[in-house]
């Protein structure tokens, strides 16, 4: 019973945080909630370690904790404070319509056509449905938000959702591969932050729609 509650809480954290990214106005809160979402993923990975007892999984847990829960949010907050872009840029669609689309996406994944994906392990159908919805909501975040920081958080949130989906779908992979992916994310974080800094320095904003001169 405790296990079920644990799963419900962690998956809900991932799912709700992916929705919160759409609603948040302050960039610092977005960064902190990303840390919280990642903490949910770390908790799930830690549960996996307790089940299997493999030291390599523990290494993955610790590395995920370091990269996603500590380093990434810290870097984002430092970046926000340095350039003082406290508030997120207005998205393309307003909040009400955005919420309607999120509702539509969440409803869509419960349809029968997605059942082969969400019933890979029938006992985990709810979690898989929520993880799949999180994935699509994260992609929608990248599509809807104009500021680069939200888009980067959207990509990271998408990655978290995929990890959760993989855990509940039983798509275990080698821990070495997990570490490789984490290293990739770690490097990518530096690149993304450097990109935002350069962008702000050049155009005085992190609104990607202002990069008009990059058009063909």
């Amino acid at each position: 019973m405790l296990k079920i509650h644990f799963f419900q809480v962690t998956v809900s954290v991932v799912f709700l945080s992916s929705i919160y990214f759409h609603l948040a106005k302050r960039n610092i809160r977005i960064s902190m909630v990303y840390g919280l979402q990642s903490a949910g993923v770390v908790a799930l990975l830690f549960y996996s370690y307790l089940q299997k007892g493999s030291p390599l999984i523990l290494v993955v847990v610790l590395a995920t904790l370091a990269v996603k829960v500590i380093i990434a949010p810290t870097f984002f907050i430092r970046l926000i404070n340095r350039h003082k872009f406290k508030f997120a840029v207005d998205p393309h669609v307003k909040m009400a319509l955005g919420l309607a689309i999120i509702g539509l996406i969440s409803g869509l994944v419960t349809l029968h056509i997605f059942s082969p994906l969400t019933t890979i392990i029938p006992a985990n159908q709810t979690y898989l449905t929520l993880a799949l919805a999180s994935m699509l909501i994260s992609v929608f975040l990248i599509a809807n938000h104009k500021d680069a920081l939200s888009q980067i958080v959207g990509i990271l949130s998408l990655e978290n959702s995929i990890v959760v989906f993989a855990i509940f779908a039983g798509l275990d992979q080698s821990s070495i591969l997990d570490l490789g992916i984490l290293f990739d994310i770690f490097v990518w974080l530096f690149v993304a932050i450097a990109f935002i800094s350069m962008m702000y320095r050049h155009i005085g904003s992190i609104d990607v729609t202002r990069m008009k001169r990059l058009k063909d």
Binding site: H92, L136, V139, F140, I142, A143, V208, L214, K215, D216
Partner: peptide, 25 residues
């Protein structure tokens, strides 16, 4: 369609992803 707006491109990806998932299944 190729208007230089990255958001639009991501939206295409989202739509394509949903269609691909629905049709692929």
């Amino acid at each position: 369609i190729q208007n230089g707006n990255i958001n639009a491109y991501i939206l295409y990806i989202l739509l394509a992803l949903i269609i691909a998932l629905a049709m692929g299944i």
